[in-house]
Simulated assay, not measured.
Amino acid sequence: MAFSRRLGLREQEENERKAREAEERRQREYDELKRREGEAIARANYEMQRAEDERRANENRDKELQNIKDTLLERVTRLNKRMTELSKANEYLTNRNNQLSNEINELKNKSCFWPEKQVKLESGRIIQMSELQIGDRVLSNIKNGVAEFSDVYLIAHIGQLLLTTTHYVFDENLSIIFAKNLRPGETRILVSDDGNRLVPVFVDNITNEWRDKYISFYTRAGSVIANGVFSSFYDHCPPSQMLMNLVFLPVRWWTYMIPSTHREERLHPYVQFLETAYLSFINVMKKSKRLTNN
């Protein structure tokens, strides 16, 4: 609007200048013709020239107005096109942000245990995971008949609504495997028996269950025996217990100096950072794979 006003003022000033010059020219011609031919002829010629000048001025004004209209229409068209592009970009970013948020929440909600699962403390007490506190020493492994206990150093988050289909457990070869990939009658996992031993047993049945609460915590050993099953704390990550122990090394060292007090539904910042980074890495790999296939 400011552009069109400035352009209109310039055009108006130019038209006024041309009109003054035309009037001066006609007056000179009138005076000269009046001196030679008389006033009647001079007046007729003056009126004819004035009519011709007004016709040309109107034509020029119409052309200038049309140019202004064309310029403004072109600008409006470009702005509409740009607005459409920005709207599509905003829609894509909104959808992408929602997708990433859902994936992050999905990852967050899958890396947990049911709080009713039981663990054994070094004191011999059997408690539910919901009762765990920072510093509790829980049964994390059994080697050569000797029970090993490890400190709980971090409670990443607690909350509601969980389906733990992607939690890692240890198979008979001490490899970690998604719970959803266990095969009844085929996969053997490690469970503890009454003689303080980890023994391989076949999975006999798998069911998916919704629970209304969950808890995610970590021991310095990176493992726990929950409800008798030898399980990893790590989930939806590279299938390497050693690698994940190294990834969590900074927070393990930090909590030696400053014990964690985090116990809430919001994911612990360090764990949130790791999951976001891993999710971004997965998305980059998927895009690279699509580009390679295309």
Rank of each mutant, 00 (worst) to 15 (best):
A19N: 05
N144M: 01
R220Y: 13
N109V: 00
R55N: 05
A277T: 07
A42H: 04
Q241H: 15
R78M: 07
E148L: 15
N45P: 01
T166F: 13
I142C: 10
A89K: 13
A147R: 15
N80E: 15
Y214W: 04
N227V: 00
V138Y: 14
N60T: 03
P238T: 10
I104Q: 14
R220G: 11
A179P: 04
E186M: 10
C112Q: 13
N173A: 03
E24K: 11
A277H: 02
N196W: 02
L279N: 07
E54F: 10
S111K: 06
V76W: 12
E131R: 07
L163F: 08
R188W: 02
S231M: 10
R5F: 02
Q160V: 11
R35A: 09
S223W: 08
H262V: 05
T165R: 10
Q99N: 10
L161W: 03
W254V: 06
G222I: 06
R290W: 12
P269Q: 01
V201A: 07
M1K: 15
E59R: 12
R82T: 11
L174Y: 09
L154Y: 10
H262R: 01
A44V: 04
G185S: 10
S4E: 06
S192N: 08
R266G: 13
R188I: 03
I225H: 00
A19F: 06
T261G: 09
I282K: 15
P250S: 08
T207A: 11
L73S: 11
I189Q: 06
T261A: 11
K180F: 01
M242A: 13
A226F: 06
E91C: 02
N294Q: 09
V247Y: 03
F248I: 00
R56W: 07
N58T: 02
P239I: 04
T276L: 12
Q160S: 15
E52K: 12
L267N: 07
L33V: 13
E122L: 14
Q12D: 01
R183V: 12
W254A: 14
L279R: 01
R61V: 00
T164P: 15
I158G: 08
L162M: 14
R266V: 08
S192F: 01
S223F: 11
Y30D: 04
E16I: 06
N102I: 04
A89S: 14
V284Q: 09
Q241R: 03
S111I: 01
F273M: 11
E172G: 05
N293D: 11
N173S: 12
L139S: 11
K108A: 09
V199R: 00
S87H: 01
G159I: 01
L246I: 10
P239G: 07
T276E: 14
V251N: 01
Y256N: 14
W254M: 15
R5W: 03
L9V: 09
S150T: 11
N173G: 03
R26V: 02
L86G: 02
E106P: 04
M257C: 12
L163P: 05
R183P: 00
N105T: 04
N205M: 07
R20H: 09
Y168R: 02
V203P: 11
